[in-house]
């Protein structure tokens, strides 16, 4: 079992390298050279002095060297934990991006938990009560959910609840200038801001998940061993929850692992509408401001997340599915 995990990790390493090379190459296609933005001309400097300063900066940071060399320099830094410096914030990338990652995690963790808590029972019940009104309703709901553009839905919710009804705050994560008296009030404030964006994300995620769970459940219920369980005289409840559900867990685990990177990358748009200070915002801003190091770091982050999720999926698959355990 441990051998399996180690093997999987070892296998990932060349993949990580290939990805980093591709990303590095792609981003060097970006217009503008780093020194233009990182070195600001002081008002008392002549143009010549400014150019000289930029040239010095270039040589000092190795931007004049050929690309492959630059890559090796960068990757060795990354392995040691140095992700480079953000040109916008003039601080190490990790520091600049850290708090934003935390905010995204708060939002996405909530969404993940809620959407699965709701979707799994609905999916199972839909499969059990196939073709019933319950099932048909959720089928249509799911189709709506996956067809709805998230930004439209978000704006609609803002229009209804923030503007017209004024029940929820307009944007951001916390009320500006608000000093919370205690930790509960602080989190309540955050929660109020989180309701709308998380609703948008939850409904989007729900739609796909319900369909997936339902379909997985249906495949299992059709199997002969379920019929045998019923024939043994077991109550329907035991048949469904003890036998069917356990086997449905396997594909569901896959989906949970897959959802993590999907949520993070998908929340970019929603964060933008609600101005939730998350990593989606970071990437967009970095792209608009040509903050090279941050862009590179963010993309690596997303890719790493996907690979990590893949690994978790493989490992938990091995844990949950006894057939894999024995091989």
């Amino acid at each position: 079992m441990l051998k399996y995990i180690v093997k999987r990790i070892l296998y990932l390493i060349p993949v990580i390298f290939v990805i980093s090379i591709i990303l590095f190459a792609l981003l060097n296609l970006m217009p503008g050279s780093p020194e233009q933005f990182m070195v600001q001309c002081a008002p008392n400097q002549s143009q010549e002095q400014c150019n000289q300063a930029r040239e010095d900066f270039r040589i000092r940071n190795g931007y004049d060297k050929p690309l492959p060399t630059q890559y090796v320099l960068w990757i060795t830094n990354v392995i040691q934990g140095d992700l480079g410096e953000s040109s916008r914030f003039n601080m190490p990338v990790a520091d600049a991006v850290g708090p934003f990652i935390k905010n995204s995690i708060i939002l996405n963790a909530w969404v993940l938990v809620m959407s699965f808590l709701i979707a799994i029972p609905i999916g199972i019940l839909s499969a059990v009560k196939r073709y019933s009104f319950f099932d048909n309703f959720w089928q249509v709901f799911s189709l709506l959910g996956i067809s709805m553009p998230s930004f439209f839905f978000g704006i609609l919710l803002i229009y209804l609840f923030s503007m017209t009804l004024q029940w929820t705050p307009l944007s951001g994560m916390i009320t500006t200038g608000y000093q919370a008296p205690n930790i509960f009030a602080h989190w309540w404030d955050i929660f109020k801001h989180m309701i709308l964006p998380s609703t948008v994300l939850i409904i989007g995620s729900l739609a796909g998940t319900i369909r997936y769970v339902r379909s997985a459940m249906l495949d299992i219920i059709r199997q002969d061993y379920i019929r045998t369980a019923r024939a043994k005289g077991l109550s329907e409840r035991v048949v469904i929850y003890s036998h069917a559900f356990r086997n449905a867990l396997i594909p569901v685990v896959t989906l949970v692992a897959f959802s993590i990177p999907a949520l993070f990358s998908g929340s970019t748009i929603t964060e933008s509408i609600f101005q939730w200070p998350g990593i989606g915002q970071v990437l967009i801003r970095a792209l608009n401001e040509q903050d090279f190091s941050v862009v590179l770091a963010m993309n690596m982050f997303y890719a790493m997340l996907a690979l990590l999720a893949n690994l978790i999926m493989d490992v938990s698959y091995a844990l949950v599915d006894p057939r894999v355990k024995l091989s």
Binding site: I19, P261, I269, L307
Partner: peptide, 26 residues
């Protein structure tokens, strides 16, 4: 299939945005 896996590992939206910005201004 390994190649397909690598392409699939990139999360869609961030990479699409990045590519669009990196290549698009030209």
């Amino acid at each position: 299939m390994r190649f397909a896996e690598i392409v699939r590992s990139f999360p869609f939206l961030p990479l699409a945005i990045t590519l669009s910005a990196a290549l698009g201004s030209r």
